[in-house]
C-alpha cells in the first residue's frame, strides 16, 4: 500500500458509540477523520457528532457484526488512510483484524502515544503484556491501532452519514439473545476503586469489601478469577490486561497477589494500596502503601478508621 492518503484517518466502529478515544488518536495523525460504523443507525448518528464523515453499513439485523469485517476492510483499504483506529475490545479487534489481513499491516495495541515525524506515524506502545514499551516508526502501509474506546461523543456538530449497502459474510445468524441480569458498573469514572482478589474466602464476605468501598466513596472491582470462574462479581468489574483499565486517584488491592496481568490495569492509578497476608506477595513491590495482614482483620479496622461501618 503505497501513497497513503496522509490527510485522512479512519476509525472502525463495532456497534459501540464510545469512540472519543479512537477519534482522539485518529486526529493526531490526520486532518480528516472518517468513521465506518457497523451497527444500528443510532450508533452511526452518535458517532457523527465526533468525526467528519460517517459511512454506515445499514441495519445489521440478525447478522453478527463480525460478518461485516471483510467489507469494512475493503472500504478502509480503498481509502488508503494513514491510520486505522479501532477499540481494543473483542468486537473492535474483529474489524481491526480484517483491516490487518487486507493490508498485511500489524495491529498495534497497548498504545501510549501516537505522533507523526518526518511523514511517518510514530507509536509508543506496551509490549509483552506491558512489561516493556517500544517506540516504532511505521512505513509501507496504514498504522492499524487498537486503543481504549473512551466516551460517547457529546452532541453538537453532526457530520454527514452516508449509507453503503451492507455485504456481510453469509455465515451466521443470531437466533436469540438472553439479556444480562446484572447491571454494569462504571469503574472508569470512579476516583477510588477497591479491588478484591482470590484471597476472599466466600461470596458472602464481599460485604466487608463493600463496607470499605463505601467508607472511601469508591467502587468495588476485582481480579479476573472473581469475575470469571466463580462469578461473584460481574465480568465488567475485573481489572487488568483483559479487563478494565482504570486510573483512579486511589486503588486498594485487597487479597490480590499482584500478577502482571492484573496490575497493568491500574498502572496509571495515582496511589496504590495493598492488603495481603503474604509479605512476599508481588503486589508489595508495586504499591505505594501496604498492610501486611489478614484481610478479615485489616479491612474492618480500615473501614472503622475511615469512619465507616461494616455491613
Amino acid at each position: 500500500m503505497n501513497a497513503s492518503n496522509a490527510s485522512q484517518s479512519w476509525v472502525v466502529v463495532a456497534d459501540d458509540p464510545a469512540v472519543t478515544g479512537l477519534v482522539e488518536v485518529a486526529r493526531t495523525v490526520a486532518d480528516e477523520v472518517v468513521a465506518v460504523v457497523v451497527g444500528a443507525r443510532p450508533v452511526a448518528d452518535t458517532v457523527a457528532a465526533g468525526v467528519d464523515r460517517v459511512v454506515w453499513l445499514g441495519e445489521p439485523g440478525a447478522v453478527p457484526l463480525e460478518a461485516f469485517a471483510p467489507q469494512v476492510a475493503e472500504l478502509v483499504a480503498a481509502a488508503r488512510p494513514v491510520a486505522v483506529v479501532g477499540a481494543a475490545t473483542p468486537a473492535g479487534r474483529a474489524l481491526l483484524g480484517a483491516v490487518a489481513a487486507r493490508t498485511q499491516a500489524p495491529v498495534l495495541g497497548g498504545v501510549r502515544t501516537v505522533s507523526v515525524a518526518d511523514g511517518r506515524v510514530v507509536v509508543t506502545h506496551a509490549v509483552m503484556g506491558g512489561i516493556a514499551e517500544r517506540t516504532v516508526a511505521l512505513e509501507g502501509g496504514p498504522a492499524v491501532l487498537a486503543v481504549e474506546a473512551g466516551a460517547v461523543p457529546a452532541g453538537g456538530a453532526t457530520a454527514p452519514v452516508a449509507e453503503v449497502a451492507g455485504a456481510p459474510l453469509d455465515a451466521a445468524t443470531v437466533t436469540q439473545v438472553r439479556p444480562k441480569v446484572r447491571a454494569g458498573v462504571d469503574l472508569g469514572a470512579a476516583s477510588v476503586v477497591v479491588g478484591v482478589g482470590r484471597g476472599l474466602k466466600a461470596e458472602a464476605d464481599l460485604g466487608l469489601i463493600r463496607g470499605l468501598a463505601a467508607a472511601v466513596h469508591g467502587e468495588v472491582a476485582c481480579s479476573r478469577p472473581l469475575a470469571e470462574g466463580v462469578e461473584w462479581l460481574p465480568k465488567e468489574s475485573y481489572i487488568g490486561i483483559s479487563g478494565q483499565h482504570v486510573a483512579p486517584d486511589l486503588y486498594v488491592a485487597v487479597a490480590i497477589s499482584g500478577q502482571l496481568q492484573h496490575m497493568v490495569g491500574v498502572r496509571d492509578a495515582k496511589v496504590i494500596v495493598a492488603v495481603n497476608n503474604d509479605k512476599n506477595a508481588p503486589v508489595f513491590g508495586q504499591c505505594d502503601y501496604g498492610v501486611v495482614g489478614d484481610l478479615y482483620q485489616v479491612v474492618p479496622a480500615l473501614t472503622a478508621a475511615l469512619g465507616g461501618s461494616d455491613d
Binding site: 500500500m1 499491516a105 516508526a137 509501507g140 502501509g141 498502572r267 508495586q286
Partner: peptide, 16 residues
C-alpha cells in the same frame, strides 16, 4: 508483510 516497523527506542514502563 506490507508494513515495516523501525524501532526507535525501548523503555521500562514507569509506574513499576
Amino acid at each position: 508483510p506490507a508494513v515495516t516497523l523501525a524501532t526507535l527506542g525501548t523503555a521500562k514502563p514507569s509506574g513499576g
